[in-house]
């Protein structure tokens, strides 16, 4: 294992999470793909009903970290995980909770909007149908989810139209509605605005700020302005190591660690 040329311990601001509940927590979480170690002993707390931004350069392990939290890395061949991911005290990595149950409680939104080739309605209802719900029981939660992402007024009259007919911005909001319909405790968002134009991107940020009061959100992004605009807390990750966790304002203006300062001021690398 290559030793980094910086201090690889994590610095967490004092009393940072004193007045918030913690929804999800990792303990010494490490991840390997084949022989390559991607994540190094990450200890991260995700506060409930807040937005935590995970920032860091491309390839630093943001996506891999997120995919540990809903066990999606296990779909990749050659992956090995060590450590704990605790949701309400239960370790998600140990098989006490079935993996599909984990993914219902920890939802995920991907960088590129990629709706299923189904109607708008059926996209949102997809996860609920897996629970065995029938159409009569679906209408209300589907409407709720679409209202939560401010899509209801735009699509209420064409719920049976194919989801492909929506604009990319609408498609991404549909993807969020799809995840929200299952009422997850934590919502993982992996560069959700990566494929959107600036206008849709701002629209999405408004939405995130509202959703952040509904469930815990982990927002992985390399767009620092976006992180600064929407997140309550920010975690800086570099080279698979968690460097600093702080409230967003402090992390961007007065970081505790030199590496963080270099990155947020653009002197990184």
């Amino acid at each position: 294992m290559a030793t980094p040329d910086f201090d690889s311990t994590t610095t967490i601001a004092a009393q940072l999470f004193d007045d918030v509940a913690i929804a999800l927590r990792t303990r010494s979480l490490s991840l390997w793909f084949e022989q390559r170690q991607i994540l190094h002993a990450i200890d991260l707390a995700v506060p409930a009903e807040r937005i935590l931004a995970v920032i860091g350069p491309s390839g630093s392990g943001k996506t891999s970290l997120l995919r540990c939290l809903n066990r999606l890395n296990e779909e990749v061949h050659g992956c090995r995980i060590d450590g704990e991911v605790l949701l309400e005290g239960a370790d998600l990595l140990r098989a006490a909770v079935p993996v599909h149950e984990v993914r219902r409680r920890v939802g995920m939104v991907f960088p590129k909007p990629d709706p299923f080739p189904l109607s708008i309605y059926e996209n949102v209802a997809y996860g609920l149908r897996l629970l065995g719900l029938r159409r009569a029981a679906l209408d209300a939660p589907v409407e709720d989810a679409l209202r939560a992402v401010a899509l209801w007024d735009e699509v209420a009259d064409r719920l049976d139209a194919p989801a492909f007919a929506l604009t990319p911005g609408q498609q991404q909001r549909l993807a969020i509605a799809r995840a929200l319909a299952l009422q997850p405790q934590v919502l993982l968002m992996d560069e959700p605005a990566a494929a959107l134009d600036p206008q849709s991107s701002l629209h999405l940020e408004d939405l995130l700020r509202r959703l952040g009061r509904r469930c815990a959100i982990v927002l992985a992004t390399h767009n620092l302005q976006q992180a600064a605009r929407v997140a309550d807390y920010a975690a800086f990750i570099s080279d698979g190591r968690l460097i600093e966790v702080n409230d967003t304002d402090t992390l961007f203006t007065n970081p505790l660690r030199r590496e963080t300062e270099d990155y947020v001021t653009g002197r990184y690398g």
């Binding site: 809903n70 999606l72 779909e75 599909h100 149950e101 993914r103 219902r104 939802g107 995920m108 991907f110 590129k112 990629d114 299923f116 997809y126 996860g127 149908r129 897996l130 629970l131 993807a175 799809r178 995840a179 299952l182």
Partner: peptide, 20 residues
Amino acid sequence: TQRLGSLALGATRGETLRRL
């Protein structure tokens, strides 16, 4: 991404195969 999207919504591999 279709497969991962389905899995991320709590579908098993079999359900993903059958439904999507």
